[in-house]
Structure formats: C-alpha cells, structure tokens
Design a protein around this nucleic acid. Structure first.
Lengths: 238, 238
DNA sequence: GAGTGGTCTAGACCACACA
DNA sequence: GTGTGGTCTAGACCACTCC
C-alpha cells in the first residue's frame, strides 16, 4: 500500500463491507475525514471519488456521501476479471485444461483482431474451464509473440495474466470488451458440455499495454446458463 | 460550459478528433498546457484524466500523454444507452409499439427488483422495438409511482427517459446493468420475431436517482443475433 | 540531470441543501 | 446561516523515462 488516498479508500471500503458504515447512512464529511486521517481535503476527495467510482458511495452536493453498497449482492464492478478471481467468488472448484498450445501464423480473422501482419507469429492457447466437473467456458487466447517472446504450457495452466504482469512486468492498461451471442461452433460442441443449449455467449477482449499497443486478443466462450455480466455505469463522472 | 477543466477537456478532445493532435503523438506536457491555458497544473490534470477515462489519451509516467483515439472505430464507451441512440447509430428505421401500459400492484419479483412494498403502485410498460419490420427487442419497464406520479402512453411511445430528465427534471445518476442469457418465455415468443432462435439476451437495468434511490427497473430482452454490448474498461483509474 | 507525470498540501471561493 | 461537496490555485516532493 503506497498511496495515502488508496489506503484511505481501502479502509473505508472495508468498513462499508463490514457494515461499520451502513447502507443509506452518510459518511463523515470531507472536513471530518480530513481531520480523522490527518491529511488534506483533496486527498480525502480522491479516496471518496474512487469509492464512488467503485459503487460504494454516492456523493450528493450539499448533503454528503451516501453509502449505497448493499453488501449482500456484491456489485462486481465490470472490468478485467480473470478466471481465477471469478472461480474464487463462486466458491466452486475450478479446473483448467490446456487443450491447445501452439505458435502459429495467424489467419485473417486473428490478423484483423490483433492487428498483426501475416508473417508475425502468434501464440494460440485454448483453455477449457471446468467447474464442478462441467466444462463451462472455452477461452481462446491469441498473444503477439513480438511482445510475449516466451510462453509455456505450464504458465497457461496457472495464469497467463499473472505471468505477464509479474514475470514479464507488462503493464496492462486498458481493455475493450465486446459481448455477443452466437450459435455454438463444432469446436464449442466438442469441447464444452453444452447440455442442449443452443447458444454461446462470446466475450471478445482486446487488451492493451501502457503504451497503447494491442498485444492480446481473447475470446471467452461461455455456456449461456453460467454467464453473468455486471456493469456499473455512472453518469457524469468527473 | 461552466468548468474550466471541462472546457479544456472539450477543447483538446475536439483537437484530437479534428486531427490537430495525431494518434500516437504526444500531447504537450502538463507544464506547457498549464501555461497555454493560464491555469494551475491540477486543473490541467483533471482535464487530462477525463480524456484518459474517455479513451482519448493514455498517460505514461515519465514520458507524457499519448493520443490513442483512432477516430475510425469510435469506441462507444459503455453506459446508459437508450433505444433511440442505438437505433440512430444503426441507421435503420426503428418503430416502437407500446404493447402494454398499466398501473399495477407489483408481484413479488418486481417488488424485489424495485425494492417497493406490496401496496405501492408501479407503472408497467411493455414496448416492442421494431427494426426494419422485425420485432427485435422487448423492453419491460417498471417505474415507482411515488417518484413518477404521472405517465401516459404517448410519453412511452416517444421516450420515457427524455420525459423523466426534461419534464420531471429527475437526475439519473447511475445504473447497474446485468446481462444474462435465458430461454425465451411464451411472452417473448409471442411478441418478438424469434425466427428459430432459442435464447434471449436479457439486460436488467436498475436506475438510480441522484439521492441514490432506486426508481426504475427495466428488462430489455433482445434477440441474440441483434445484440451487441461494448465495454471500455480502464485499469487503475485514479 | 532534465523533463515527465503522480501525489500531497493548505488554503480559497463557489453552488447547493436544509432548517 | 451553517454545513456540505465542487472547483481552483501555487507550490512542493517523488518516481519514472530518456539521454
């Protein structure tokens, strides 16, 4: 924990989740918090704005900051969610099977998605996600080899994301996500336990680095009954 | 335009869209911009952070702010999108049919969603959205009558949203959105042209006012082939 | 070492809600 | 009027990139 405002944010968030600040009540005023934490008001404001962005509070001019997080249904804020985080929340036993692991020349579709040339090599990884013995999700990852020169099957079994951030020190900065629903392909039918479902929810994820270069394209193909996406949209965000 | 930082944000955004600042080039430094606009650095930083949030630039510590908006594919930032905005983008002829318009005692499901009591009255509006002669979307709206005392069929045919914001002066502050996929109900089959599709994409929308009170619940039920959701997620937002 | 963005401060004035 | 959050300032120090 390095930043003061992050520390304050986390402390208040924890209190809200613990119920120390109850839903619909008001937080102490910015002036009071400033005294409590022995800091400046702008720093408190940074912390509170983060809390607002994350759906914990709602700031109302002239009144105060209302606690809105209802801890029972935990608003998972939309964003980059890895399979591991997801599985942890579901309290179910996840298992990952690396079905495909190869270095390929990209076909036209992937060239378009990843914005690479035909001669560039691309890692292609298929991972099947099993929850409680059912094959629910098929993740198809494509990574630009010029940015990720080395990759192993073992890394894919654990977490590609973790490897990129902690071993390669790549800083993932933002992602564009697109959700569509399609008919299952033959591959879907073969690799997943579709149980008579006639559609597949596809989350297309375009991941960018800090220097705004596109380096990973992922298709996460979900069985529709186990799919749920939550988005928390705020108007007029400062 | 009231705020200095909003003015600066809009000015720079316009320049980026006009190509005055080209993609992948650097913006002037915060120090330079501070001089240019005759303001303080924190104000410049607010404007730049907004630009970053809106996908115009990417700030890199030690280097500067890179312009990343590629004007060709306009990153539609996720948020509250009304049917009218959507239809406008699609350049197709939309038509709205108000299939149901009534004031009801809420059933248990709606009571739960809208967080109201059994005795409270709730507006229930069903609207069918037709695009190019095909019935694609079924919007089921439920509005708390204690917040929206008056409503007419004519308003629903036009835009409920517009009425609430401009006539009632309600300020919509944030919304929680949930996306799931289910089997079509009999009502879906009757009211939509499903054409053999075996699933329905449901967007559940919980709309809150400025004082954090929940006043509208909407289920937007889409035929899967015409559904597309885009989300633009940023990590480590300050 | 020079230049960049990130954090933090102590103060000011304003717009708004509420009594 | 009092208290709240929203904006803005002028300055400071730090972490990072690049040469």
């Amino acid at each position: 924990m390095i930043n003061k405002y992050l520390m304050i944010h986390n402390e208040i968030a924890t209190k809200i989740e613990a119920g120390d600040y109850t839903t619909n009540s008001l937080l102490p005023s910015e002036h009071e918090l400033k005294e409590q934490y022995g800091t400046s008001r702008e720093t408190i404001r940074k912390a509170l704005n983060l809390l607002a962005q994350n759906g914990y509070i709602q700031k109302i001019r002239g009144k105060g900051s209302v606690v809105i997080k209802n801890s029972k249904l935990d608003f998972p804020v939309s964003g980059l969610v890895s399979f591991h985080e997801l599985a942890e929340k579901m309290k179910e036993k996840p298992r990952t099977i690396v079905q495909k692991f190869s270095l390929e020349k990209p076909n036209e579709y992937i060239r378009q998605q990843l914005n690479v040339k035909a001669k560039d090599a691309v890692w292609h990884v298929n991972r099947i996600r099993e929850i409680n013995g059912e094959r629910i999700i098929l993740d198809k990852d494509y990574l630009n080899k010029s940015i990720v020169p080395h990759l192993t099957k073992e890394i894919c079994e654990h977490s590609i994301f973790h490897y990129l951030e902690n071993e390669l020190n790549l800083v993932i900065s933002f992602a564009k996500k697109e959700i569509v629903v399609e008919e299952p392909t033959d591959e879907d039918k073969e690799l997943l336990d579709l149980e008579g479902f006639h559609s597949i929810v596809i989350i297309k994820n375009y991941v960018y680095l800090e220097d705004a270069s596109l380096f990973q394209y992922t298709e996460s193909r979900h069985r529709p009954d186990k799919f749920r996406f939550v988005d928390f949209a705020r108007r007029n965000q400062t």
